Simulated scan of single mutants.
Amino acid sequence: MNLDKTDRAILMAVQADGRMTNASLAEAVGLSETPCARRLKRLEQEGYIEGYRAVLSKPAVEIGVTAFALVRFGVHDRRLSDQFEREIQAVPRIVSCHNVSGSADYLLHVVARDLEDYGNFVRDVLRALPGVTSVESVLSLREVKRDAGLPLL
């Protein structure tokens, strides 16, 4: 990672507000508009910025449950894992999936309308995925910190 102080400032600013104008960004990082636009374009082309997105309001889109599902496999077969990973890509309510170490094989971040909806999802979708032998759920009682972007270490 070969980023100078200004590149880092640009990355932090666009993580905080991906819709800020180039003029606002330039002012925030202490550059004139043209050099700022060039740097931003370079950061995008070099892969530091993968994309831009909106953060939706959970209540507005009727998401009342956030859960973390610990998924375990009975047999550790590469073919089953690959199939599982392919199939979860098509499940929108799985917000993220991590292959983890420890007592579980995967940690899924899942959203649902309510507990009944989540229970049906676990029964009808998660337990039916290839390789899955058990699912343990951890329900979020409240969100203390939301994804605020990546720190630049």
Rank of each mutant, 00 (worst) to 15 (best):
N2R: 15
N2V: 14
L3H: 07
R8F: 07
A9G: 07
A9K: 06
I10V: 15
L11V: 05
Q15H: 14
Q15V: 08
R19I: 14
T21P: 06
S24L: 15
E27H: 15
A28L: 09
A28Q: 10
G30Q: 10
G30P: 13
E33R: 14
T34H: 14
P35H: 06
P35Y: 07
L40Q: 06
L40W: 05
R42T: 05
E44I: 11
E46C: 00
G51C: 10
G51E: 06
R53C: 12
S57W: 02
S57V: 01
A60W: 07
V61M: 12
I63M: 12
T66N: 13
L70P: 12
G74M: 01
H76T: 10
D77R: 02
L80R: 07
D82Q: 14
Q83V: 05
Q83F: 03
F84P: 00
E87Y: 02
A90N: 03
V110Y: 00
V110N: 01
D114P: 02
L115R: 10
E116G: 11
D117N: 14
Y118M: 11
G119L: 09
G119M: 04
G119C: 06
V125D: 03
A128S: 15
P130Q: 02
T133C: 13
S134F: 09
S134M: 08
S134L: 11
E136H: 14
S137I: 11
L139A: 13
L139D: 07
R142Q: 12
R142N: 11
E143S: 11
V144K: 09
V144Q: 08
A148R: 01
G149A: 03
P151M: 08
